[in-house]
Amino acid sequence: MDFVEQERMAHGIPSQGKITITVDEYSSNPTQAFTHYNINQSRFQPPHVHMVDPIPYDTPKPAGHTRFVCVSDTHSRTDGIQMPYGDILLHTGDFTELGLPTEVKKFNDWLGTLPYEYKIVIAGNHELTFDKDFIAELVKQDYYRFPSVSKLKPEDFDNVQSLLTNCIYVQDSEVTVKGFQIYGTPWCTIESIPSRCITALYDNCSAQDRKKLRRVVNTAQRITQTNLPSIDSVYTSRCLRQAANIIEDPSHPGHSLFSPLPSGRKSLCLKARTTTLKDSFYPAVIRLLNGPCIH
């Protein structure tokens, strides 16, 4: 049965055969779609998408329907979760904290207790060990924030996906279940992970780190065959957008830091004794707003 016809039945609309679905104008450009719809996520509603209210977890399934149960970001905290009834479980990433083998095994054991006919899993950005090149480099750096990761040996993450024996794991691949084609990929748009914390970190990046970030953008452009904003322009636009929100919100803890000079045209530059503080968000964004500062 056609998916659209199922949806029509679900909403009490008489079946009239197949109908045409209008494709979103940003479907071919995920980065542009992210930027466009991220402008106001609190009222996120793409065109041609019918938003529905959640239903109670124990709601019976109508006859002739296939019910998907979609979940993500469980982060090894699955104890006590009351899962809805359904046919296909779709876990779309971040089922661990760091992708440690022990975490993956625990998640796999939990999947084994669930009654779904099909369980499909996609990795997220927290599944660090699922990207062998990245985790190998992270282990070498002995990163202080992830001491448990630093203790890993190559054989621990050589094929960590094989620990997922109670599901269908998809990575840059697709699977067909009950007539539905499902494609899964753990990769994010270029404006997702780098730009989420770019306002706090980019000014403190070394020249070498900035070069690596620019290479990421260049690689993404070659793969997607689209023009992407430079990492520097993303940083500038994100900083200015965040600063504008803080300036307009008197209740924000950082609002008073944007103290205007008597002229009213510029903000008071913040003095900093250390390079780390100087290159943190507030001094950096005030420099962006003001242009060159004279102390």
Rank of each mutant, 00 (worst) to 15 (best):
D87H: 15
V69S: 02
F95A: 01
Y169N: 07
Y85P: 07
D156T: 07
T92A: 11
E137H: 04
S28T: 12
I55G: 01
T129P: 02
P56T: 06
G112D: 00
V217G: 00
I19N: 05
T224Q: 14
Q45S: 13
P54F: 07
Q181L: 14
K140E: 09
F68W: 12
M9D: 08
S233I: 08
T102P: 00
V121H: 03
L201T: 14
T31I: 10
D53Q: 12
A136C: 08
T274Y: 07
L164V: 08
E174K: 13
G291P: 05
T20A: 10
V160G: 01
S173F: 03
K140N: 02
F146I: 03
D73N: 11
E25F: 05
T78Q: 13
T78C: 10
S76R: 09
G124C: 08
P84A: 10
F146G: 02
H65Y: 03
D209E: 14
N125C: 00
V52A: 06
Y143F: 14
I182R: 02
G80L: 03
P262W: 06
T102E: 15
D73M: 03
T165L: 08
A207T: 14
Y143W: 13
D209H: 08
C269Y: 07
Q82I: 14
R77I: 07
T74R: 01
P194V: 06
F180M: 10
Q6W: 06
A123I: 00
K178R: 15
R241Q: 15
R222C: 12
F146C: 04
I21F: 10
V139W: 00
Q221R: 01
K140S: 03
H48F: 13
N290C: 04
Q45I: 11
C269R: 13
P229H: 07
D142R: 00
F180D: 05
I193C: 12
P60L: 03
Q242H: 15
L268N: 10
T176I: 12
D79P: 02
E103S: 05
S256H: 10
V23I: 15
Y202G: 01
E25A: 15
G179M: 11
L163W: 05
Q208G: 07
K119Y: 06
L261Q: 13
P260N: 01
I122R: 04
E127C: 07
V23N: 09
V149H: 01
Y57L: 08
K153H: 11
F44P: 04
P186F: 02
A284Q: 08
S195G: 04
S230H: 08
T66L: 12
D131N: 15
S148P: 01
H48L: 00
R287Y: 04
D58P: 00
Y144E: 05
S150W: 00
P250D: 05
H255G: 06
T274M: 05
D94N: 02
H48D: 13
